[in-house]
Design a protein around this nucleic acid. Sequence first.
DNA 1: TACCAGGAATAGG
DNA 2: CCTATTCCTGGTA
Length: 327
Amino acid sequence: MGSPGCDCVGSTVHLPLMSFSDYPHSESALQAWEEEEDTKPPRGLISVPKHTVPERSLQGVFLPCFDMLLTENSSWLLKKSEAAPPVPPCKALEQCPVINSQGLGVPSGLEGQVEERCLEQVQSMVLGEVLKDIQTACKLLNITPDPMEWNCGNVQKWLLWTEHLYRLPQVGKVFQELSGKDLCSMTEEDFRQRSMQCGDLLYAHLDIWRSAACMKEPCTPGDNRLHGAEEADSSCSGQPIHLWQFLRELLLKPHNYGHCIRWLNKEKGIFKIEDSAYVSRLWGIRKNRPAMNYDKLSRSIRQYYKKGIIRKPDVSQRLVYQFVHPV
DNA sequence: TACCAGGAATAGG
DNA sequence: CCTATTCCTGGTA
C-alpha cells in the first residue's frame, strides 16, 4: 500500500520540450521508433531545479507541453509552446506553469500574493491534467498508476509508451527483467548508466508518475474507480484485451482519441479510423508489439468478418468499419 | 501509395 | 485451442 519510494525531495527534474509537430505521426516516425539506433539526443531537454516541498505534492514539475496523450484538453499547453518554440530554458521557465504547492521562490509583497494566487490556479489546472493524462495512459496500457506495483511486463509497456511519447530510441532491453520496484529503487545515475541518451528523461518521467501516485494514494483501494457511463471495461477483466474491445474503448473517449478514430454513426456502430498509423501504434503499445502497423491491425480486423464481430459497412469506404452488434 | 481481401504459417496466452 | 501476429499475393482507388 504505502509507497516507500516517495522520497519526493531534492534533485533535479529534466523534462522534454516538445511541440505538436514533434509528435510522431508519420510512418517515418514509426520507423524511427522501431529502429534501435537513433544517435540524436532527445531534443529540447532542459533541466529544472526542484524545490524542497512537503510530501504528497508534485515537486517542481514543469510542463511546457506534457502531452501524454495529446488530449484536446491539454492542447492549450501545446499551443503555448508552439507559439514560442525556441525559448531559451531560463525564459521558458518563467512562462511555464510549475506544479508546486509551496516552497517556490515566489516574489513577496502584494504583487507576489496576486501572482501566487494565479500560480496556484495554474498549478492545480496542470496538476489535474497530469493526473488525468496518467489515468488515461493507465487505461490505455492497462497498468496501475503506481510504478511500485508494476511487474516486468508493465515496466516494458510503460517504457514503450514513454519512448513513443518522447520519440526515444528503444531502450526496453536495457531495462529488461526489472519490476516497478526495481525501477523505483534506481537512482538517476543508474538510469543514466543504463541509457546514456535518455536515462535522465526516463527517470524524470518515472518521477512524475511516482509523485502522482504519491499524491493520489488516499483514494486508491482498487484504484479503478470508473466514473460515469464507461464501465464495460476490458481492463480489469484480467484476460488479454481483444482488438475490437480496444477499438471500442478508444471510440468511447472521443475527447482523447477523436482525432484518430471516431464514430460515423454510433447507433449503427459505424466508425472511421482517421489516423491509421496512430491507432496501430497505440494498439502495438497496448499489446507490447512495437512492430505493429496498420497492415497487421487491419488483418486482425478482417479476422472478425467471419466471426461476425466487425464488418465493412454496406457502402464500403476506406478506413471505415462497422460493429455487427452495436451497443 | 495506401488501403483491402484473405491464405497460410506461426506465436502466445 | 483460440486469437492475434506476421508475411504474402493480388486487387482497387
